[in-house]
Design a binder for these strands. Structure first.
Lengths: 138, 138
DNA sequence: ATCCTACAATGGACAATGTCTAAGTCAAAC
DNA sequence: GTTTGACTTAGACATTGTCCATTGTAGGAT
């Protein structure tokens, strides 16, 4: 991910302190942050960054495919910087913890033609639901 | 779905005009409505029904398992009265149209133990993405 | 090194969705 | 018919996200 800045520069993006900070936040060990969480972390590194800029930058990163949006819960969208490795999600229904998972098989092939209603099907998202070990003992 | 009212009565629920109207709306031909769409339709049958009541009633129906929440887009939750037949969704990325689909296979079995991180996995939601015939020609 | 200018950031208003509360209402039991 | 507590209401509030006019600035041109 450290070459994200390079890729952005290659696309002719202007490199600003704000964009750098947002990229750094996404590059941290915490994945699947909400936009406001990204903003909160960005503020610690660059106090004057605005909410709108974080939303804009996240939106741009999503548009160019560097970051994925996931909406596992009913609350805010979350942003997944792991866009270059396809994966699905496993969510704890108690605490909301999210893990990336890689089921076997090809779920796209599991949708019969008769079930496609003429759609051009391009992808599938799978969200496994369960309870994490932490919440199971608590 | 017409026995929904019976089932609710069986659970000791008080049967009010508002709840009846919400149930009727969900029973219509339009599936996957948002909460506000449910409210809009309910208002035509019972003008004084309040938004809070619709939200409350939908939430209760979800809790007891008569209705499913689906969050296929980043906007509002949608409510799926087809709770008694397990199914997944196919969403048009252009216009947001939603169809119920039934892929073959057992996606739960496709998640290896090594990918479960100690979670107790209880279910999976699949959202197929694509473009509907209407939007494909437009 | 300085200047220009298009692009980016800001902040605050606005919008959409959802939640909460206090007070009034009414379904159902008696 | 009364009573009672669950239900409904209206609207304030909270959260999440978008928009826009203004201000700032990165990076190329000079």
């Amino acid at each position: 991910m450290s070459d994200l800045l390079e890729r952005l520069r290659g696309r002719g993006w202007r490199m600003t302190a704000q964009r750098r900070v947002v990229a750094e936040v996404l590059d941290g060990d915490h994945v699947h942050l909400t936009a406001d969480e990204v903003h909160a972390r960005a503020v610690t590194k660059l106090p004057e960054i605005s909410r709108a800029t974080v939303y804009n930058t996240l939106g741009e990163l999503v548009t160019i495919g560097e970051v994925l949006e996931v909406s596992t819960d009913k609350r805010a969208k979350r942003y997944d910087p792991n866009a270059h490795r396809p994966h699905h999600h496993l969510v704890c229904g108690q605490c909301g913890a999210i893990r990336d998972v890689h089921p076997v098989g090809n779920p796209l092939a599991d949708l019969p033609d008769a079930e496609r209603f003429g759609f051009t099907v391009s992808g599938v998202e799978m969200t496994y639901r369960g309870v994490c070990p932490n919440c199971a003992t608590a």
